[in-house]
Amino acid sequence: MGKKSRIKHRSTATVETAPDAVGPRQPCPCGSGRRYKACHGSGDSSSPYVARPFDGLAAESDLVALREFVPAATAPLRLREPHERSVQVCSLLPGAAPAMVRDDGSVWLGLQVQHGYGDPSRDLGAVLLEALEAEPGSLVSLTSPPGEGPRLEDLVVDEPLEITVHDGFDYWVADVEDPDGTMAGALAQANEAAAPTQRMTSAAAAYWTRMGEREYLRWVLPHPEDAVLDALARMHVLGDESLVEGDRLIGMFRAHGLVVPVWDLPRGTGPDAVDERLGAVAARLEELLADPSPLTSEERSARSGLASRQLTIR
């Protein structure tokens, strides 16, 4: 797989000084690209690391998906009073910009950005506030830790996102003239790099994608990791984990405190065939998540195997 590069302040947001899985010389989980010991593990970071920045939001899993691996998607956001502006969250903006104010005054808020200050929700809050004050036609950046202030959930209405997944990035310039074709050339290159992706309708935050000749399903689950591993282990032993004939649950990765299991699908499967079965798998998973009984020896073995298959690429 290739890598794609509530009104209520959450004073209880999960803050971790040193996640157990991160060594001092490993990359900081905030996404800065620096080693942990030189970033949020330095002991003097001005911005605390929040392990699950979108915790409690109805759109948590989809926000994680759009931030981590969905190439081209948009969704409207409703602002809390007293703000009255049209705001759209985008998986990616031109140049990985944090935000842009369109000529009509509407705000586009980017999720896939180059900065990482420990709490993406606080970063988004700071960028959104600045964008609301910026002039039309402006780009908004974030070049230093934002400090204290409202987080995303303090500024927007807490509700599920109405997501539109696009075939490419043409929506960037849908209302912009391009007389010399400059933007068209740049768009063609960006579109070529965007893996075809489709959001499933039968389960929340599940996305089919095709990368080259390979197809995958990535499913962002909002449940605690231990509970997910237990439930998936039970499903494996029962033979209930399959989405289509010939598929394989190849492992998982972690993103912003959530677990993302990944299925490798047979060539030519397509999104519709996956969607037909996914609803039943999701319902079965919910049943098993509620099972309080201890794992059997066979289930423990299956759990250990799944936990060891940690994917390091998106």
Rank of each mutant, 00 (worst) to 15 (best):
K37A: 05
A51T: 06
G251Q: 03
T182K: 12
L285D: 04
D180E: 14
V165Q: 05
A134F: 13
S46Y: 09
E213R: 15
T269W: 14
L232Q: 12
T143C: 01
V262H: 04
V101P: 04
L155H: 05
E148R: 14
S293T: 07
T74K: 00
V274M: 11
I313D: 11
I7S: 14
Y216E: 08
W172Q: 12
Y216G: 03
K8V: 09
D175V: 11
V127K: 13
Q112P: 02
V89N: 06
P224W: 12
V107H: 12
R254Q: 11
L289R: 15
A233N: 10
Y171K: 05
A195H: 11
A290K: 10
P98K: 15
V140F: 15
V262F: 06
P294G: 05
Q310P: 00
L155E: 04
C39A: 06
R35W: 02
G181F: 10
I7Q: 13
D44Y: 15
A307T: 01
W108A: 06
E162A: 13
A190I: 00
T296Y: 08
E287K: 14
A51E: 05
A65F: 11
E287G: 02
Y36I: 00
P150R: 15
S91Q: 04
L232P: 03
G149W: 13
S5G: 09
L289P: 08
P29A: 09
S144F: 12
D226N: 14
E130C: 08
L155T: 00
S47N: 12
T17Y: 10
Y117V: 00
A99C: 11
E81I: 03
S141C: 10
